[in-house]
Design a protein around this nucleic acid. Structure first.
Length: 759
DNA sequence: GAGTTTGAAACT
DNA sequence: CAGTTTCAAACTC
């Protein structure tokens, strides 16, 4: 990537690296100064883009993100790092250093939680973050900034964003303010334990999780070309403070929507950072939220959506924080875990994206309205489904629900009942947690019944585990990386915040067996256009089940089939018999069938029915997909969002959205981050690929060649080797290498692992 | 709502 | 790694 920005950054970095401050820092730290860390710069865009999916991946994303976050805090603590004496990998240098120095308490993710108590902090941090985003010296005049640049560069080099960020920094960020803020934060920090890195990474993830909107926000910034400075700031603010704060608000009790934002705004003013956000911050928030994304500023819906998901990460981070709590700022701990109840609540509140995305994916298909809206803005694609869905008969009794839903009601679209229900459910669930955790354990049937009465119980229904304690992949909730909540009818459920330790341990165990265990089952590949055969669609390559199905009797025509359930065609990876998957038969099935393969009792009527079904449900969507894809490509090209709700789900009006199939943002990545990277992310288009190639071709290729970090090889080492095959391979083989897009995808997927620190 | 079918997950 | 068992969702009645 020879973009001017990069060049500029590199040169700038070099300059700074040679500065006295930098030298001083180096002298204090075992870390070797590394000039212009180009490690994953190429993929930075991905990091942004993949945020949602990354959310779930503490490792990969965390590294990246953590760095990103670290940067924010790092500037202030060169000395601290050295003082801590924590070991840093020389190779990772800056990045690691940042990690160690990074104070979780300072992370944006935490900020969201802490904000209520410390409004000023957020103000400080946000600007910092912005600054960090810009990997260019332009935004970092101070020594601290310089170091930051070194560290952050890898992550901050996103192609599209850099210019904006830089500009923003130039326009709105006050260097002095930033520095001061940094140090202020620094003072609060305490010695960092050896656990920091992990802690940080997770914290970073949390941050990310808390801001599923990040990608959108950035996209919005880019696409809309709004005032970079204000836009970015407002975006960040709107996202973090708004969502997270509002969550916190919910816990503590009804505070009105923008109050937090206002406080944030005040904070900015207090810190002389006001200039960063021209005009009322609130206004910005509103504008950005409502206009570009069609999201209400205080969209509780959105928030509610994210609540359950990724709780695990939150817990993990939090727990680690606690473990090292002796070292960490007590205030932080308190904030993270208010009281027992509050603690749980917070967890519940912790934003998650898995469900959110799921809903989106579905919505893209099912919800025409949402489609329209999505078409108008890429960001909305992801969100609208959420917002549009709050049709929640299910929210009946819960005031909290009502409030949540009410906030979303403006956007309400009734078409997608399922999504709506689920979304509402999520929100309601979250609120339910807030209201009373015991809901989880009590009256599951009642809840379920209520949901069913809602008319779309399917969408809302959660698990019904009886023996697995919801600690196995049998449990949909567990598999999806979310806690069981109200709607669940499970028995002896351990998949609750109270048992966070158990949950985390179990997850780790499962992932140790199969790193992909929590990965999205359906991976969107590249080709959005299903291959429509003569009379039957054969293996649409737009998405594939990561492992493939093993159906024997269902002919892949029922939801027993995970491929079918996920709305994707069977692929070469499938070992199904008599595949008649309406979304695409296993390669060879169609041929065999056409040849009158006895193994496949080809029932013409069935075939036609399947085909018809497909036509009804997918053909149209394919076109839509194409449109969406083009948009998405645009966004992707901007370097922010790579994951798309393109996976088309077959169940429009009935059947709950296959959460487990969402290709995005499952909590899977929690522990698999390094290994699985971000395969979760739906890799779209060729354009992106080109982007990649131009930007990070080198590394990508390396990764593909197996030179990347250990985790790079998706699945090669999967315990389920017999069944799981790398998405890439799948793509390559299934798609038939003719298409460049596929090839590109292969590259792009591996690229994620590159995000992990180089050695 | 109970019972059956199905295939993934887990186990051996 | 293959076969078996367990499990819970999907489905049927």
């Amino acid at each position: 990537m020879n973009t001017p920005e990069k060049t500029q950054i590199s040169s700038s970095l070099s300059k700074f690296e040679d500065s006295p401050v930098f030298n001083y820092i180096n002298s204090l730290s075992p870390i070797k100064p590394v000039k212009s860390v180009h490690v994953t710069q190429t993929f930075n865009p991905l990091s942004f883009a993949s945020l949602p999916s990354i959310f779930t991946s503490p490792h990969v994303s965390s590294h990246k993100e953590s760095r990103f976050l670290k940067c924010s805090t790092d500037p202030s603590k060169p000395e601290l790092s050295s003082a801590d004496g924590t070991k840093v990998s020389p190779v990772e240098d800056a990045g690691v250093d940042v990690h160690e120095n990074f104070d979780p308490a300072v992370s944006l993710g935490e900020v969201s939680f802490e904000l209520p108590n410390e409004p000023s902090r957020i103000a400080i941090e946000l600007p910092q973050t912005l600054k960090y985003d810009c990997g260019s010296p332009d935004c970092a005049p101070t020594p601290c900034v310089i170091e930051m640049n070194c560290v952050s560069q890898p992550t901050c080099t996103s192609l599209a964003i850099v210019p904006f960020v830089q500009e923003a920094s130039q326009k709105g960020l006050s260097d002095g303010v930033e520095v001061a803020a940094t140090f202020q934060i620094e003072r609060k920090k305490e010695t960092i334990g050896s656990e920091w890195e992990s802690l940080i990474s997770e914290t970073a993830d949390l941050l990310i999780f808390s801001s599923p909107n990040d990608s959108e926000a950035f996209r919005g910034v880019i696409l809309k070309s709004l005032d970079p400075g204000s836009t970015i700031c407002s975006t960040l603010i709107s996202q973090f403070p708004q969502d997270d704060i509002s969550d916190y608000k919910d816990q503590t009790e009804g505070i009105t929507g923008l109050s937090e934002i206002n406080s944030v705004n005040e904070s900015f003013e207090d810190n002389n950072v006001t200039n960063i956000v021209p005009g009322s911050l609130t206004d910005h928030v509103e504008n950005r939220m409502s206009a570009p994304y069609s999201i209400e500023p205080g969209s509780n819906l959105h928030r509610g959506f994210r609540r359950r998901c990724l709780d695990f990460e939150m817990l993990a981070a939090r727990r680690k924080n606690l473990d090292g709590g002796s070292n960490t700022n007590s205030s932080v701990d308190n904030k993270l875990k208010p009281s027992k109840a509050g603690c749980d609540s917070s967890r519940c509140i912790v934003p998650g994206i898995g469900l959110h995305l799921n809903a989106l994916a579905i919505a893209s298909r099912d919800n025409n309205n949402s489609k329209l809206e999505t078409s108008s803005s890429g960001t909305q694609k992801l969100i609208l489904p959420c917002t549009t869905t709050s049709n929640s008969p299910t929210a009946d009794n819960e005031t909290a629900h009502e409030s949540l839903l009410a906030s979303v009601s403006t956007k309400r679209e009734t078409n997608d009942v399922e999504n709506g229900v689920q979304l509402a459910e999520d929100a309601s669930q979250a609120s339910a947690y807030l209201v009373n955790e015991e809901f989880n354990q009590n009256s599951p049937k009642k809840k379920r019944r209520r949901l069913e009465q809602a008319g779309e119980s399917e969408a809302c229904k959660r698990c019904n585990c009886k023996k697995s304690k919801c600690l196995k992949l049998y449990c949909e909730c567990f598999a999806a990386g979310v806690y069981c909540i109200e709607p669940c009818s499970c028995q002896d459920c351990f998949n609750k915040p109270i048992h966070e330790d158990t949950v985390l341990a179990t997850r780790k165990q499962i992932e140790s067996r199969n790193p992909l265990a929590f990965a999205p089952k359906v991976i969107r590949t590249s080709d959005p256009i299903p291959e429509v055969g003569d009379d039957l669609i054969t293996t649409p390559a737009s998405a594939r089940h990561k492992r493939g199905c093993n159906c024997k009797k269902s002919n892949c025509l029922k939801k027993y089939c995970e491929c079918f359930q996920g709305g994707v065609g069977c692929s070469i990876n499938c070992r199904c018999e008599g595949c008649k998957n309406a979304f695409g038969r296993k390669e060879g099935s169609a041929i065999l069938e056409a040849e009158g393969d006895p193994g496949e009792e080809t029932d013409p009527s069935e075939k036609n029915a399947a085909n018809k079904k497909f036509e009804e449900t997918d053909i149209l969507n394919n076109e839509e997909q194409i449109q969406l894809l083009s948009q998405q490509l645009h966004y992707s090209f901007a370097g922010f969002i790579l994951e798309l709700p393109l996976v088309q789900l077959p169940f429009s009006s009935k059947g709950k959205p296959p959460r487990s199939f969402i290709a995005i943002g499952s909590s899977s990545a929690l522990y698999t981050g390094h290994i699985y990277g971000k395969p979760n992310i739906i890799q779209p288009p060729n354009i992106i690929e080109k982007h990649f190639q131009s930007v990070a071709e080198d590394e990508t290729l390396e990764i593909l060649r197996g030179n990347s970090s250990p985790g790079t090889g998706i699945k090669t080492s999967s315990p389920n080797s017999k069944r799981i095959s790398p998405p890439q391979y799948e793509l390559g083989s299934t798609l038939g290498g003719g298409r460049s897009g596929r090839k590109l995808i292969l590259q792009s997927i591996p690229s994620f692992p590159s995000l992990t620190p180089k050695h």
